[in-house]
Amino acid sequence: MGNLQVVYEVPKIYTGPNHYCPGCFHGIIHRVIAEILQEEGWDDISIGIAPVGCAVLAYDYIDIDWFEAPHGRACANATGIKWAWPDRLVFTYQGDGDAASIGFAETSYAAIRGVNITTIMVNNAVYGMTGGQMAPTTLVGMKTTTSPYGRDPKYAGYPLKMAEHIAQFEGTALSVRVSAFDPQHVLDMKKWIRKAFQYQMEGKGYTFIEVVSTCPTNWRMDPVKAAEFVKNEMIKVYPLGVYKDVGDEKKEG
């Protein structure tokens, strides 16, 4: 093995095996976060806030300090931790049920206060852990266990777009929607999560990353088809892109 040149090695702080269903993007996002923390040497100073949802056991998979928040209150807990330890890298890792549904107020008010934390929201359009019920982010016409004929906007409303919502607040430094359905988009996601962590370390304000993700089990698809569904259907409703970037505005002005 002497003359081998390393192209990619799984980060040491990503400790498996994990409990996620085969092909779930949670694993990819965990791994990317672990890569960034290890490459930048932030693994000793970072504190993650685990949500309630599929990622509830995230503290077992990335070897950093973690805090387990009550359902939806990850951003409120992160605020307290950040105010107590301003020099730490504090990020919340939430699903759409946690950050956009029960924790909508906490997430919004963290942005309104402009707390110096990062939220990574994994949007897979259903409540994954509880068995695939309709979430605020479910696409119109999408079949779930609580909308067996498809989501009907007449009584269930329209999908919630968090990246656009968070971008409107003055306290937000970065609001981006990324995905991970192919290697290029995984690299793109890594770039933006790294930038969000850098903004936090520079004290620029609240940073929000929404990752459009899959739920192969509750969508009743195999993982490859689920990734294609993200590429072909979900991206139309949740367009990828940068919705607010304080760094860019300063350059232009």
Partner: peptide
């Protein structure tokens, strides 16, 4: 390293020789 980038479980390490 496309396979390693897409792997959710961290199964694959990639080297070149």
């Amino acid at each position: 390293a496309f396979c390693a980038m897409m792997c959710p479980e961290g199964v694959i390490d990639v080297y070149r020789e």
